[in-house]
Simulated scan of single mutants.
Amino acid sequence: MSDPASPHRDAARLQSRLGPIARVHRVRSGLRRTQFWAAVTLAAAAGAAWLFAAARGLIAYTAYGPLLVPRWVGAPLALGLALALGAAWMAARAWRASRVRVRLHASGLAILRGRRGQALTWGDVRRVWSRAERTGLPGLPGTRRVRLEIEAVDGRRLRLDDRLEDFESLAAAVKAGVYPRLLAEYTRAFNGREPIQFGPLRLTPDGVVDPRRGELIGWKEIRGASLAGGRVLIETARPGRRAALRVTAHRVPNVELCTQLIQEIGQSA
């Protein structure tokens, strides 16, 4: 027989592991207001379309009889239904956004949607991805969305994006909590002559493996590494087109640590 108090003990244990709350981030207030008023506007437009349909139906019935009523009211009724569905969809988005809370703790992170949610301590995190995506129709200017994806050692993934208030400071706090431990683990692995995998990039005791050609770039050939234009740029002493290796940054987990390690190991080789 299960102990009814065990969920409360588990929650208390997790709370003690997460530590005190440092900050709480909600969906940006401007976005919440936009979604709310969009839902209200669509609902009002749906009501207006149905009133227009009722007026046309009354005119058709009075002037021509009941047979022409469906033809006169069909289009505004369909338009009103489409607007009502849009209003319901937007209202659902606004309601969900109002329930989202991201709690930044001293030793971890909790994402809450109402009373439900997920939590991770910094020690549970294995990888962090930074992604920048452009939304919109092809050929037209769109909006740039920045996302942070956090993967735990048990395979769970938590996703954050710039719809949250003060997203940049939240992302910086996550990396500040996770990266020091991961850097120490990577350093121990490298000193133990173990390869380190960062997505398509593989760091070995002898150099970096080029993911396109499968060639090894020796540490003495590497002149530096940096993040620029959404890419990891590894500069080498090789001639011509092989002088630089470029890898899309969002494919590389813990990309800042990867760049830092390549830079430091290359300089000390």
Rank of each mutant, 00 (worst) to 15 (best):
A152M: 05
G177R: 02
E165W: 08
A132R: 15
R147S: 13
V128C: 10
A152L: 07
L160E: 14
V178W: 01
S130Q: 13
L158N: 02
A176I: 01
R131A: 14
L170V: 08
R134N: 11
F167G: 03
V174C: 06
F167R: 03
A171N: 01
P141L: 08
L137E: 15
E165M: 10
I150M: 05
R147N: 05
S130I: 03
T135Q: 15
E165N: 13
I150C: 02
V178G: 02
E151C: 02
G155I: 09
E133S: 11
L158S: 01
L164S: 02
V128A: 06
A171Y: 00
T143Q: 14
V174T: 02
S169M: 03
V153P: 00
E151G: 07
R157H: 08
A176H: 00
R156A: 08
V153G: 12
R127A: 09
G139D: 09
G177I: 01
V128P: 04
E168I: 00
R131F: 04
D154R: 12
V178K: 03
A132H: 13
L158V: 10
L160G: 12
R144L: 12
A171I: 01
L164P: 09
K175R: 15
R144Y: 04
E168M: 00
A173L: 03
G139S: 07
R131P: 01
R144F: 05
R126N: 06
E151V: 04
G136D: 07
R159H: 15
G155L: 06
W129L: 10
V178E: 01
A152T: 10
I150W: 04
P141A: 08
E149G: 06
R144E: 09
I150D: 03
A172R: 12
D124V: 02
V153R: 14
E133T: 09
L140S: 06
L164H: 04
E133G: 06
L137Q: 14
S130N: 10
V178H: 06
L164G: 04
R159F: 12
A173R: 00
G139P: 12
S130L: 12
R145P: 03
T143F: 11
K175C: 14
K175V: 11
I150L: 07
G177L: 00
R159W: 12
S169P: 00
E168L: 02
I150V: 15
P141M: 07
R127N: 11
V146T: 15
R145I: 11
L137K: 11
G139A: 06
D154Q: 10
P141S: 10
K175Y: 05
R126G: 13
L160Q: 10
L158R: 00
T135H: 14
R145D: 08
V125D: 07
V153F: 12
L160M: 13
A152D: 04
R159L: 15
D161G: 08
L148W: 01
R145T: 09
A132G: 07
A132K: 14
A173S: 13
L170T: 03
G142I: 14
R145Q: 13
A152G: 13
L164C: 02
